[in-house]
């Protein structure tokens, strides 16, 4: 629905819906904190930002949608291939290996840790380096945004002291010798 709806604002709202669904999946696997974070960060910040951008840009939707239909058959073929593959995979796998995950959330909870604490424990000990690298990835993203978007604004008026001091009568006034007869 995100890409199908004609109105971009609706699209963003559908996006929020899908974020909610993802959050529910997290909830179902006992990860309340993650679910909440997802809602807060994505729905609260990212999606709202999207909404602003969409409203400000005021894209002509109909024009942007032109030519969508042309790629539809191709897309359908791709989708069907992927679906068939997926169904093949999962039919091949009768029992989903259940308890082989490294981190067992319920086990952690039983030890008396809260959900949030468990995540923190893992994130800052075992997965510390991963956390750091993610930080660097974000830093690069920020740098990139600055590099690509920041522009020295040269449109405003300001005093250039050296130029003012540099000017004198000879430069300011230009004498043209005009022959009256011509």
């Amino acid at each position: 629905m995100v890409i199908l709806s004609r109105n971009t604002v609706y699209s963003v709202l559908y996006l929020i819906l899908s974020f909610f669904n993802a959050a529910i999946i997290f909830l179902m696997s006992n990860a309340e904190f993650l679910a909440m974070t997802l809602i807060i960060v994505y729905v609260g910040a990212v999606a709202v930002l999207f909404l602003f951008v969409v409203m400000m840009l005021n894209i002509n939707v109909v024009q942007a949608k032109e030519g969508m239909l042309r790629y539809l058959p191709f897309g359908l073929v791709l989708i069907s291939i992927l679906l068939i593959e997926l169904s093949l995979i999962f039919s091949d796998l009768p029992v989903f290996p259940e308890s082989n995950t490294k981190i067992n959330i319920s086990e952690l909870l039983n030890n008396g840790n809260s959900n949030t604490k468990a995540i923190g424990l893992h994130l800052y000990t075992d997965y510390f380096i991963i956390f750091q690298i993610s930080g660097f990835v974000l830093l690069v993203a920020m740098l990139g945004a600055i590099v690509l978007a920041y522009q020295k604004n040269e449109n405003y008026i300001k005093q250039d002291v050296s130029r003012q001091l540099d000017s004198d009568r000879k430069k300011a006034i230009k004498l043209n010798d005009i022959k009256p007869n011509r």
Partner: peptide, 19 residues
Amino acid sequence: LSLFLSMELQSLALYILVA
């Protein structure tokens, strides 16, 4: 996991460099 993140780090920087 670490492979993925470090790959992202390098490719993100490269995208910016290309542009």
